[in-house]
Amino acid sequence: MNDTEAGTGAFRVRPRLTVLSGPSGVGKSSVLAELRRQQPEIYFSVSATTRKPRPGEVDGVHYHFVAPEKFQRMIADGEFLEHAEFAGNCYGTPRTPVLQALAAGKPALLEIELQGARQVRIAMPEAQLVMLAPPSWDDLVVRLTGRGTEDPAVVERRLEIAREELAAEKEFDEVVVNGDVRAAAAHLLSLMVGPQSQEFDE
């Protein structure tokens, strides 16, 4: 076992990238915030985007904000693990910081949409894909329609996309059901470090 396999700090795991995906409204942000609380040593990937910062967003913390021309150069240079365009803006996952975290022995987590997860599967076949799912379809519908302040057509489109994403469950290695945020975060953490830590404790 070398130092990279052993990792650093509290981890005794073989570094691996975990990709978390799931439909809108399933609670990804809440689960990731709880995961940070439970294990702050995990590396959380920061995406690059061509959109303008929103009030309160910090460059390098929430996103890496880059000009469209630079983003296109990054694509041409193969700097992204995955990238996509959404609502007129481009988003992508820089490859180098993820690889550096893994080389340092830190489990890395990337939260992206289904299409991005599929790209990562091709770029890094060893990555672990995890779907965050609602307790039931009815529960997700309530989460997406509960506010009642959005255009019904927009809500229906979100539900349609959610159906497509949940139908892709078989493409994922694991499924975490978010019925309780703390429990879901603990389950995700165990998938990232539990089984592998046992491997190196033998």
Rank of each mutant, 00 (worst) to 15 (best):
V26F: 01
T8C: 08
Q38T: 04
V13W: 04
L35G: 07
T18K: 01
A6P: 01
V13E: 03
G9Q: 09
S24I: 13
S24T: 15
G9H: 08
A6M: 05
G9L: 12
V26H: 02
L20W: 00
P15D: 04
A10Y: 02
P23W: 15
Y43L: 05
R12H: 14
Y43R: 01
E41D: 14
T8Y: 09
F11C: 02
T8Q: 09
T18I: 08
Q39P: 09
F44K: 06
S45K: 06
G25Y: 00
G9N: 08
A10E: 14
R16F: 00
V46N: 05
G25H: 04
R16M: 05
F44W: 04
S45H: 04
K28S: 12
V19T: 07
F44N: 02
A10M: 12
G27W: 03
V26T: 05
R16L: 08
E34G: 08
V26G: 00
V19Y: 03
V13P: 01
S29T: 15
G9C: 11
P15K: 11
A33P: 13
G22C: 02
R36Y: 06
V13L: 01
G25E: 05
L32A: 06
A6Q: 08
P23Q: 13
G27I: 06
G9P: 08
T8M: 08
A10S: 15
L17G: 07
R36E: 09
R37H: 15
P15F: 09
R36C: 02
P23A: 15
S30W: 06
R12N: 14
S45C: 11
G7W: 02
T8D: 09
Q39Y: 05
G27V: 07
R14A: 14
S24E: 12
E34R: 15
E34L: 10
Q39G: 06
L17N: 05
Y43D: 01
L17W: 05
V13A: 02
R12W: 13
I42E: 00
G7I: 07
L35V: 10
P23T: 15
I42R: 00
V19G: 05
A33E: 15
E34V: 12
L35W: 09
R14L: 12
K28H: 14
S21R: 07
S45M: 10
P40N: 08
E41P: 02
V46D: 07
R36K: 10
V19A: 04
F44Q: 11
G9Y: 10
P15W: 09
L35I: 12
L20N: 01
R36M: 04
V31Q: 06
S24F: 00
P40G: 10
